[in-house]
Design a binder for these strands. Structure first.
Lengths: 196, 196
DNA sequence: GTCATTCCATAGCGACCACTACAGAAATTG
DNA sequence: CAATTTCTGTAGTGGTCGCTATGGAATGAC
C-alpha cells in the first residue's frame, strides 16, 4: 500500500510560495531580492525555504521555469500557432505589449531584466542563453519561410531575428520605464512595418 | 597672489581614477560594483575615494555625467547635426551599433543597463529619467518635423519616439548578449525602414 | 625649524548577506 | 503508548557590504 510521506507535513502551499517568489524576483531581479525578502512574502522561515527549494539560486531557476510556463508562454504560442513567421512575430509583439504592461503584476519580462548586472555569471548566463535561444528559434522560422518563398530570397535571417529580439527587449525596457499598453501596442505595430 | 592648496597634495590622478570607475560601473552596474572593487581598479584606498568623490552614489553620478560627455554624446550629436530627425535617428542608431560593440570597452550603454534591478530607487530613477528625457527630446524633434511637413501629418510623435527608444535599448541589450557590430548595424538599418 | 592643513594606509565599525545548527512540534509506524 | 521521521522557529554562523576613526606622512605658511 502507498502511504503518505512520514514525518511532519509541510505547513505551507509550495506552489503559492513559488508564485510569490516569482513576483518578487520579477519585480526586483535576482540579486536585489534577499532571502529575507523572499521568506517574508512566502510566509515561511529560512529553513523551510532551503528544505523545499534547495537554495536561492535553485529557487530562482524554478521561478524562471515557472515564469516561462505561466507568463512567457505567449511568445512560443504565437510563433507556433500562426501560419507564417510574419504573423507569429506580429502577434508575439502585440501580446508582449499587453503582457508587459498588465496591471497587478511587475512590468516587462523577467527573463530579460531579472539577471542583468548579476554578480553570478552562471545566473546571468542562464537567462542570456534563454534569450539567445529564442532569437535562434525565430531565425530558424525565418529561414524556413525564406525556403518556402514566404519571405524574399535575399532576407538575412539572423539580422531579422536579432531585430525582433531587440524590439521585444526594447518593449520590456520601455514598459519598465513607464510606457503605456496603448503606446507599446502602437510601437509593436510600427516595428512590423520594417518586416520585409 | 593665488597659491596652491595647502596641505598634502592628492597622490593620484582624479580623472584617471574616475575613468577606471566608469569602466567598472559600465561593465558590472551600480550595485554589483563594490567600493572594494572600485578602490582596487582606481589604485587608491577607501578614504581617498570618499575624500575625492563623496560616497559611492556621488561617484556614480559623476561617472554618469562623465560617461554622457565621453561615450554617450554621439546620440545628441547625431540628432543635432543632421538636417532632419529621420537622418539624425538613422545616424544615431548606426553609431549606437558601433559604439555598443567597440572592442576594448564594456558593451552596450551604461545609462540603459547600469542601474536596472537597483535597490536604490533614486539611482534607478535617475537613469530612467535620463532615458525618458532622451525619448522626449526625440519626440519634440519629430513634432517639429511634422509641423514643417517633413513628416506626414498623421504621425504619432510619442509612439515613434518610444519606438526609437526601444530600438536603442534593444541594440544595447543585444550587444551585451553577444551580437556583433555588423549584425547590429544591419539591425539599425532595418529598424529605419519602419520610419514613416 | 614649527605649526596648520590636507591626504593616505590600516584597521575596523555596524548592517546586511546567504545560509544553517539546534531543539521542539507534528505527522506515521509499530 | 514509544520510536522514527520530517518540518518549523529561533537564533545564530562567517563573510561582505558601504563607510569611517585614527594616526602618521607630505605639503605650504611663517
Amino acid at each position: 500500500m502507498e502511504s503518505r510521506r512520514r514525518g511532519r507535513p509541510r505547513s505551507f502551499d509550495r506552489e503559492a510560495a513559488l508564485a510569490q517568489a516569482t513576483l518578487l524576483f520579477w519585480e526586483r531581479g535576482y540579486e536585489a531580492t534577499s532571502v529575507a525578502d523572499l521568506t517574508r512574502v512566502m510566509g515561511i522561515g529560512p529553513p523551510s525555504l532551503y528544505a523545499a527549494f534547495g537554495d536561492k539560486r535553485a529557487l530562482f531557476e524554478e521561478v524562471v521555469d515557472s515564469y516561462g510556463h505561466a507568463f512567457g508562454a505567449f511568445a512560443a504560442r504565437a510563433l507556433e500557432q500562426e501560419p507564417t513567421t510574419r504573423a507569429g512575430v506580429a502577434r508575439m509583439l502585440r501580446e508582449a505589449a499587453e503582457e508587459y504592461t498588465r496591471p497587478g503584476r511587475p512590468r516587462g519580462c523577467l527573463v530579460i531584466s531579472a539577471a542583468t548586472n548579476c554578480t553570478s555569471e552562471e545566473v546571468e548566463g542562464a537567462l542570456r542563453e534563454r534569450r539567445n535561444a529564442t532569437v535562434r528559434d525565430i531565425q530558424r522560422r525565418i529561414e524556413h519561410d525564406i525556403s518556402t518563398g514566404e519571405l524574399p530570397e535575399g532576407t538575412d535571417a539572423r539580422v531579422l531575428a536579432v531585430y525582433v529580439g531587440a524590439v521585444v527587449q526594447g518593449l520590456s525596457q520601455q514598459a519598465r520605464d513607464g510606457a503605456t499598453r496603448a503606446e507599446l501596442e502602437a510601437v509593436a505595430a510600427a516595428a512590423m512595418s520594417a518586416w520585409p
